[in-house]
């Protein structure tokens, strides 16, 4: 019975690992393919957080050790806390520096300074 449960956990870890890695790959694909910084950031910070969360969860589960699991969980919580902060700050920096949105985007509701040098 114990062996069976371990086998199930191992298969679950394998599955979660592949799903998490595909999320990370899709995030990086978004970083390449999207037209401007703001959309790229959208892909990187959302899908990247999901991918890293799944992979860290898989790693913590695989060890079957509460100490390692707590570490993986701490890393995940740290990511959830910090990814929006860095994305927000970078987007604000880009907007303040006059980084225009791509022509495909519809509306920019944040007022942009007129004298900002256009990049």
């Amino acid at each position: 019975m114990g062996g069976q449960i371990e086998a199930i956990i191992t298969l679950l870890v394998a599955l979660i690992m592949i799903v998490g890695a595909s999320f990370s790959l899709l995030a990086a694909l978004g970083v390449i393919r999207f037209p401007d910084l703001y959309t790229r950031m959208h892909a990187a910070s959302k899908a990247g957080t999901v991918g890293s969360g799944l992979l860290l969860f898989a790693a913590g589960l695989h060890s079957l050790d509460p100490a390692i699991f707590a570490r993986a969980l701490a890393a995940f919580v740290f990511f959830v806390l910090t990814a929006p902060i860095s994305a927000h700050l970078l987007a604000k920096a880009a907007h303040q520096a006059g980084y225009r949105m791509s022509r495909l985007s519809v509306i920019d509701q944040l007022p942009q300074k007129e004298e900002a040098r256009s990049l």
Partner: peptide, 26 residues
């Protein structure tokens, strides 16, 4: 199950390496 986890780790590492290459391209 050992085989499954080994192959899935390999696949995940290949995907992550590809993602790193994409980020490097950017």
């Amino acid at each position: 199950t050992e085989l499954a986890i080994l192959w899935s780790i390999l696949l995940a590492q290949v995907m992550l390496a590809l993602a790193m290459a994409f980020a490097l391209y950017r």
